Amino acid sequence: MTKLESVLQALNNGEVIAYPTEAVYGLGCDPDNEAAVMALLAIKQRPVDKGLILIAANYSQLLPYVDDNAIPSEKRYQIFSSWPGHVSWVLPASETAPKWITGNFNSVAVRVSGHPVVQQMCIAYGKPVVSTSANLSGQPAITDRIELEQRMAGKLSAIMPGDLGGATQPSQIRNALTGDIVRS
């Protein structure tokens, strides 16, 4: 079994994985599996009410979670021209977006990544995955594979191989409706 196959099997089984992103290692799981998301949040020691980012290979994968009709036409160019890329956008959530993803919000944070490993994983999986930094909440993000393996020992079912993308900071998060920077 290839590493990709073991990652896909872990996702399908509702388990938590890690993978390289543009700047840091991320933790991920199936966004539609509440038990998987709760397991990921337990690893991070993060409350569900904060919401989570979804990362995808293309915007089409995000449509089940986003209320596309609620995105103003004058904002669409700025959003879509930043993808694939290193910007996460807070968009209006669809009525079917799980509350364990949106948290206490009527919006959902999403990103179409240009990272080749993320692209490969999301295309093979056929949908987005949860994307949150691989660290305990409030601690520095992990940028070293050995540190990832040590700090997350016994907590992950699979780690997607590959290098980080070379960005120096986690993705910027912007509110699509206001243009405000939520995280720089």
Rank of each mutant, 00 (worst) to 15 (best):
M1R: 12
M1I: 06
E5M: 07
S6T: 08
S6P: 00
V7C: 11
L8E: 01
L8R: 00
L11D: 01
N12T: 08
N12V: 00
N13T: 08
E15I: 02
A23D: 03
A23H: 02
A23Y: 01
Y25T: 02
Y25M: 04
G28F: 06
C29N: 05
D30G: 03
P31M: 12
N33F: 04
A35G: 07
A36T: 00
V37T: 05
V37Y: 01
L41I: 01
A42T: 12
A42G: 11
R46S: 00
R46K: 06
P47L: 08
V48W: 12
D49W: 14
G51K: 00
L52T: 05
I53L: 15
I53Y: 02
I55K: 00
Y59V: 13
S60V: 15
Q61P: 03
L63D: 05
N69C: 12
A70C: 13
I71L: 15
S73D: 15
S73M: 15
E74C: 14
K75C: 14
Y77G: 15
S82I: 13
S82K: 10
S82H: 08
V90G: 01
L91S: 03
S94I: 12
E95S: 14
E95K: 13
E95H: 14
A97Q: 02
A97V: 06
K99A: 13
W100C: 09
I101T: 09
I101M: 10
T102N: 05
G103P: 00
F105A: 13
N106H: 15
S107M: 09
V110N: 06
R111H: 06
G114P: 00
G114V: 08
H115V: 10
H115S: 10
V118L: 08
C122V: 04
A124P: 04
Y125S: 07
Y125V: 02
G126R: 05
G126N: 09
K127N: 12
P128K: 06
P128W: 03
S131P: 00
S133K: 02
S133N: 04
N135C: 05
P140Q: 09
A141D: 08
A141L: 07
A141P: 04
A141M: 08
A141Q: 07
I142L: 14
I142M: 10
T143P: 00
T143I: 11
T143F: 06
T143R: 12
D144K: 10
R145Q: 11
E149D: 08
M152K: 02
M152Q: 06
M152L: 14
G154S: 04
K155G: 08
K155P: 00
L156W: 06
S157M: 01
A158V: 01
I159L: 02
I159A: 01
P161Q: 05
G162F: 05
G162P: 00
D163W: 09
D163C: 11
L164G: 04
L164W: 07
G165T: 10
P170T: 10
P170I: 09
S171C: 08
Q172M: 15
I173M: 09
I173E: 04
R174N: 13
L177G: 10
L177Y: 08
T178D: 11
T178E: 11
D180G: 11
I181C: 06
V182R: 04
